[in-house]
Design a binder for these strands. Structure first.
Length: 432
DNA sequence: AACTCTAGCAACCGCCTGTGT
DNA sequence: GACACAGGCGGTTGCTAGAGT
């Protein structure tokens, strides 16, 4: 408070003749704004200053109203259901906070964004696992049955035809894809993730040492160009590689170093879920009570922190990192009955389904990190960073990367279409 | 008790799109 | 079509409270 800047109040240009307050809002300012909106309605935010006497720029007023003063806002922590919904939505649409907010009544984009970022940070630190071994095994089996050769996904093909300038993004046509229960996939995914209590009670179950692929909203390439809604750019290639085709990626020799040793570094990126999700057999805790994660910062991961790199040396590592998928460890041992979803069955298609216009529980589009990772199979494996458990602060990010690397610039023609078709094992036209 | 670290949150910034002229 | 403006969006920053040492 008390900060003052010069702001024209229109757009993002700043003028020198008008000074607006910045910083936290006072209750008096809130009352002025509320009174203004009561009288004039929301919108025309730049007129607020004129009519209300507020020394705030229009954008600031709008933000304050939208994020805090709107009467329909929910206050308090996210409920379990909301958290789950956020994860679902993020899996399907990426960092489209505003869109996600439309799916979560009473929650603002800013709130969701903060929630997500905080959660991801926390999970990164914890290195929590997501997918059970069964999933990986099934994926590998499926890959073997399909006879797909990892060569098609490794260096030559993908690197040459897809990386290209590594600066552009394919436009894909998913109209033929069918969804196979993306939401239920997430449900099962979540069900496989331990609750905080589970982890407390059975830390050994959750040692981060497997092959689960986790989305990361971070590690976006620098200088990434932001695109708006119609863009089907790949904001990042994080996501869940979940179906049998994308799972082939997991089977890549580049990914699989020493089985069981793909430990997740404490700072690795993933969409972990040591949060509040319970298995379907466990009742969710509803209400605003927020289950806090236990502090696992001293978690015994059966691995000396400083040994991460040594244990994960991989000739294919240290290639590139603009997005991150993390291989992590088994959690629980879900039986098929506990995993009724399409978790291992046509998941990619289920992810993509939404783009066909038949909206499911989860809005899905080609932006989906889920889809992106499925298609691109871009896996980074990151060691701990400096501030975590004594890891070498100078350690570069190690990663395993297969498949194409894209930046955020849109590519008008995608030479990787064949690659994707091969990946999907079909002759569908995913390019445009 | 003092200090440090971290999570959570509010707010800002810059870029973008849509609309009107 | 060019321009200006209003508003929206996503990323980032900075502050604060609480936990940990």
């Amino acid at each position: 408070m008390g900060k003052v800047r010069h702001d024209s109040g229109s757009g993002d240009e700043f003028a020198i003749d008008k000074a607006f307050h910045k910083g936290p809002w006072t209750s008096a300012e809130d009352q002025l704004l509320i009174a203004y909106v009561d009288k004039h309605g929301d919108g025309n935010w730049n007129a607020v200053q004129k009519h209300s006497g507020l020394s705030r720029c229009g954008k600031s007023c709008r933000l304050r109203w939208v994020n805090h003063l709107r009467p329909d806002l929910k206050k308090g922590s996210f409920t379990d259901k909301e958290e789950q919904r956020v994860i679902e939505l993020h899996a399907s649409m990426g960092n489209k906070w505003a869109r996600m907010a439309t799916e979560l009544p009473g929650r603002t984009d800013n709130e969701i964004k903060n929630f997500w970022n905080t959660r991801v940070k926390r999970l990164q630190r914890l290195g929590l696992p997501i997918y059970p071994d069964e999933v990986r095994e099934q994926a590998m089996n499926a890959a073997a049955q399909n006879g797909h050769n990892a060569d098609s996904l490794d260096g030559h093909h993908s690197q040459e035809s897809l990386e290209l300038d590594c600066l552009e993004i394919p436009e894909l046509n998913f109209k033929h894809l069918q969804l196979n229960g993306g939401s239920s996939f997430l449900q099962s995914m979540l069900s496989s993730v331990p609750t905080g209590n589970q982890m407390r009670q059975n830390p050994g179950l959750f040692q981060p040492n497997i092959y689960n692929v986790i989305a990361s909203p971070y590690h976006q390439p620098p200088n990434r160009k932001r695109f708006r809604e119609p863009e089907t750019a790949f904001p990042y290639t994080g996501g869940y590689a979940t179906d049998e085709h994308s799972a082939q990626l997991w089977n890549s020799p580049f990914v699989e170093s020493t089985p069981g040793q793909f430990n997740v570094a404490p700072d690795s990126h993933f969409l972990g879920n040591a949060t509040t999700y319970s298995s379907p057999s466990e009742p969710l805790i509803h209400g605003a009570e927020k289950l806090e994660l236990p502090s696992f910062q001293c978690f015994d991961t059966q691995e000396e922190p400083g040994d991460w790199e040594a244990q994960h040396s991989n000739p294919m590592q240290a290639i590139e990192s603009d997005n991150t998928l993390v291989l992590s460890s088994p959690l629980t041992d879900p039986t098929p009955s506990e995993c009724p979803s399409s978790f291992c069955d046509g998941l990619l298609e289920s992810v993509v389904y939404g783009s066909s216009g038949e909206k499911q529980t989860t809005t899905t589009d080609p932006d989906s990190p889920l889809l992106q990772s499925s298609l691109l199979g871009h896996i980074d494996i990151t060691p701990a960073t400096a501030n975590t458990a004594g890891h070498n602060s100078s350690a570069e990010t190690d990663l395993v990367h297969f498949g194409p690397t894209f930046s955020n610039e849109r590519r008008t023609s995608f030479e990787g279409g064949d690659w994707i078709r091969q990946l999907l094992g079909e002759d569908r036209d995913y390019t445009k």
